[in-house]
Structure formats: C-alpha cells, structure tokens
Design a protein around this nucleic acid. Structure first.
Lengths: 200, 200
DNA sequence: GAGTTAATAGACCGGATGGTCGGTTTATGG
DNA sequence: CCATAAACCGACCATCCGGTCTATTAACTC
C-alpha cells in the first residue's frame, strides 16, 4: 500500500469543474482536451488517469451537475406548500441553474458523438432526471385542484419545453429580464391550466 | 467568354441540399467535408469552387432554409383571418418545417465555431428572421382584441421559447404526437392570454 | 531507507479534417 | 478549330486532437 491520501479525488473534481466551464463556453467538441488540461492545471497523463476518455468525462460532469441540481431543488421545494408556489420556484431554479449551456453541449454530444448506443442511452437517462420532478409537481397540482385535470405527460412536455425553450432569449436579454420572463410565462401558463376550483 | 451555361448554380444548390441533410443528421462539426463531398457526388475542388469555406457553406444553407420557411409561411397565412387561426397555423408550420435539427446545428455552430464576430453576427441575424413574424402576429391579435394587451416583446419571447422548446420531445414522441403537443400548447397559451373581448 | 503504489508529468503518435493547388474537362464565341 | 474561362477533379498538405506510453514523484508501510 502506498499514497492512499485520496488526493486524487480532489484533482478529479477540479479537472471536472474546469472542464465543465469550458464545455459550457465552447460546446463539447470545440472544447479540446488540451484546453481542459491547461485550464485545469493538470497534465494529459493525470487527466487520463482519472477519466477513461473525453466522453466519459463529459458524462461524469453531466451526472454531477444533474444530481446537484436535484439536491438543490429538494432544499428549495421543501418549505413550499402549494403546487403553484412550487411551479414558480421551479421555473426560477431552472432559469438560474439549469438554463446554463451545458445542456446545449449535451445535445451536441448526443447528436454527433456517441455512436455507441450505450453511451447515447446513458446520456438520455441523465438528460431526463428532472422529468419526474415536473411530472410529480403537475400531478400534485391537479390533485389539489390548483390545475385543471388533463394528460399529465402532455402537460409535462409542454412545461418542460417552455422552460427549456425560454433560453432563446439568452443571448439578447440580461439575467434579470430572463428571470422575469420565466415568471411571466408561468403567469400565463397558470391562467391556461388553472383548475375550476382555484381562485385567481 | 466561355461556358456561361450557369450550370454551376445548379451544382451549388445540389451540394447545399445534400450538405443540409448531413448537418441535420450529424450536427455541424461532425458532418465532415468529405462526407458532404461523397453525398453530393462532387469533388473537393468543386465544393471549394462554390463555397469559400465550410462556415460559409453552412451560413448559405441556413439562409436558404430560413427564406424558404418565410415564403411558405406567407402562402399559408395569406388566407387566414384571425390571429388565433394564424397562431395555430404558425405552430404547425414551426413544428413541421422549423423544428428540424438544422437549428440545433446552428446553435452548435454559433457556440463553438464562429470565433469571427462578424460570422457570429450574421448567424444571429439569420436565426432571428422569424422574430418579426411572431411579433406582428401577436400585435395583430392584441389589436383585434383576441389577445390581452401586454408587453409584446416579452410575449414574443415566451411564444418563441415555447415553440422552440417543445422540441425536447423530439426523441421520445412521434411526429403526430409532436404536432398534437404543439396544438395543445397553443390551447393553453390562448387560455392564458385571451383578451377580455374574445369568446371561447 | 527500501519497497510499493497512487498520482502526475509530458513527449509522442496515428488518424482525421478543413483546405489548397495544379491540372483537366467542357461549353461557348470568334 | 481554337482560344477562353467557367466548372470540376482529386492528390496532397498542414494542423489539430484524442489518446497512449514511459518515466518520475510523492506518500505511505515496514
């Protein structure tokens, strides 16, 4: 036995975080391993000691990011009561943490790389971890009468699409205006799906 | 003067169309010039005779696509009366013609390539050609009382985001279900922005 | 301090990719 | 015909990029 300091894990995380920033800025394929190496202040050898490949590194980063997002959401949503409140909070959470361009990189990754179907499958899985959160929220809202009863799956895709799609304004609006846009869109959505029993 | 047959233009279009298909299938960077060459049944020399670079070729294709989309929309919307009808038709047009993965490729292109700010600017310009269509439609609807009066720019981004974002379901739903999803989302949207003077 | 091994370093490689270049074909006008 | 230029061809190039390999360092045990 030797050097079980476990410092390697720290290095791995550091590399991942710097790489994440690069993936967000430049997309998957345009962020080269050499740029990552430089940004992380590590060596090629070290990087490939921790990660089998660029693909695997990206998946690792994506997983960390998604899990972190879910954790944060759990903390945010815990004290909230109504589905309506939660929906606003979810939009906010989505706008601030999720709307980041890492998802664009993931789309690019899935669209071109990942000839390996297993990799593609894992990617899809990671991309969908937040689906159940939306679905549950909408179901709860219907249950409580806040939202009109309707096809949950369909509504889930619509809300999901709305949240993801509002990112188009990313390049043209500031962070504050984006946040306002998300809230406003929820206003409209709520008026559109408000249950008969709800007031407003 | 010699060989002013103008057949070159035909070849250029052919190359562009085959390349477009490849860009849609594989994304910008993953579609290689050699694949394009093979698919187009042309030579490297011929391709670079017609296009200065891969970048320029992509921009050319994007422009053709957008202009074509606008033309088709003009034909579709001409006989339609109300803004509400037009909104449904626009969603349909968007879903069938626009939701195609060329826009994903454009995002990838803009996110990584296009270090040249001029190229990036031209890309943004092309990406936004349909903005005025949405804006005008919404303004008309407000004018006629079909839609509630509100900030047009904000609503435009919301509708735009909704349309673009619904593509998340692309990998999981069939074409018919997608179309239904678009219609359903417009149903909800309309309930959310319906003007006081409108019936429904 | 000798032995061991996790961890790091960085020179190097093979292949792919966008792009070039000199040459060839083909239609047209004189 | 023949000169001319548009259109086309394909071998070749320079570069970049993901990944490998060998060597070295540092931390731990005995």
């Amino acid at each position: 036995m030797a050097r079980p300091a476990g410092q390697g894990e720290h290095t791995k995380k550091r590399i991942a975080m710097r790489a994440k920033a690069l993936f967000e800025q430049k997309g998957y394929s345009a962020a080269t391993m050499d740029e990552i190496r430089e940004a992380a202040g590590a060596s090629k050898g070290s990087i490939y000691y921790h990660f089998k490949s660029k693909e695997e590194m990206f998946l690792y980063i994506l997983e960390l990011t998604m899990l972190d997002w879910i954790d944060k959401w759990a903390a945010i949503s815990a004290p909230l009561g109504t589905a309506t409140d939660k929906l606003y909070a979810l939009a906010d959470h989505f706008a601030s943490d999720f709307q980041n361009p890492l998802m664009k990189a993931a789309e690019e990754f899935g669209g071109s790389e990942a000839a390996d179907p297993a990799v593609h499958e894992r990617l899809l899985e990671l991309t969908r971890v937040h689906y159940p959160i939306f679905r549950q929220l909408l179901e709860d809202g219907m249950e409580s009468g806040e939202f009109e009863r309707m096809d949950v799956g369909e509504l889930m895709y619509i809300v999901l699409g709305l949240m993801g799609g509002l990112g188009v304004a990313y390049y043209e609006l500031g962070a504050e205006q984006i946040a306002a846009l998300y809230r406003r869109s929820i206003d409209i959505l709520l008026r559109g799906i408000r249950g008969v029993g709800a007031d407003g």
